[in-house]
Design a protein around this nucleic acid. Sequence first.
DNA 1: CTTGCATATGTCAATAATTATATATATAAT
DNA 2: ATTATATATATAATTATTGACATATGCAAG
Lengths: 184, 184
Amino acid sequence: MNALGYALLGMLVRKPCSGYELTQLLEVFWQAKHSQIYPLLTKLEQEQFLSYEQVQQTGKPDKKIYSITEKGQALLQDWIAQAPAAPVIRDEFLVKVYAIWLTDVHTAKKLFEERISVYEEKVLFRETEIKKMKQEHGKDIEDITSRHFGRYILFQRKLNQEKDEIAWCRWVMSLLEKGAPTIG
Amino acid sequence: MNALGYALLGMLVRKPCSGYELTQLLEVFWQAKHSQIYPLLTKLEQEQFLSYEQVQQTGKPDKKIYSITEKGQALLQDWIAQAPAAPVIRDEFLVKVYAIWLTDVHTAKKLFEERISVYEEKVLFRETEIKKMKQEHGKDIEDITSRHFGRYILFQRKLNQEKDEIAWCRWVMSLLEKGAPTIG
DNA sequence: CTTGCATATGTCAATAATTATATATATAAT
DNA sequence: ATTATATATATAATTATTGACATATGCAAG
């Protein structure tokens, strides 16, 4: 089993979901396209880590709601206790930053301004999500036995990181301005 | 061309390197195994974005020192000015955290303690590297026209992130302790 | 009316990335 | 002697991931 498989199990142990919903919820801590998720759900169901129920809908296409099985939960629990593999981060922006000295100050500034703007939107989005969680579940989310705990602390982490990214970008911008002061 | 290709160009525009050296230097902002790097270097050389020189060594195996060509540098410069793709982050630890509520407080604490310990080592390593850069290049590294600038600001970013990861882990640990106080 | 968007699931080809295997030199440790 | 580690490059097999294609429902906007 690969990490994506465990990610799916981890989402489904919290609550039953459709593949479509999983694809969206996954965004916080793993990235995968539906073309990877749907076949994996089928495989996981065949291996009896998951089961599903066909749900008819009106106004929308039908969907499959997947649930974790006891076998699936046992597998997940064993995996959690094992030491995790090293994280993989692949960010094109950082590759560009590495060679930023090749470009002019204008291009550099534009790159960082755009980054700030993207992350400012992320911060707003994340803050709304956290607010919603607090409203829905109250202090429950800060309790380790709550099924919202993991999601909550990951959202807080994301929010921190996104704020820090903005702060770092601003720091770099100040260095850029020092080097080539803009003509007022 | 893929992002890894540009990452290699970005390293080589700073200074000529062997494939072996590139594999190690890449760690800050991209992850790739040598089995991916060597064939890509060959391909980049065939397309005349790179050139190489065979260097004999005593006490060590011979090596190929790659340099970027003008064609390669032009390609890289064009690419930098374009909007970067969204980052991809895949961290098994986060997958485990998401489902942490399934485990007992002991397992949870162990997971976070281990994370803290790993990141504390990273912070020490990163601080040493930054110190070295400052000693070697002085104030030069804070100037955007310096070839060390990109590398320097990325190291600072990494250091910030690693410190924040530790802070976040400690925050989670405090929540874990609140939920289930240890018997003194 | 028709274009676009959100919901919903699926497959297939192509590319990217990892794991395993292979080879070779030299030093340090056991 | 032998084992481990660091330097150095390379390829083959496998797995992971993306991008493109495909289909279908229903709503809202123009």
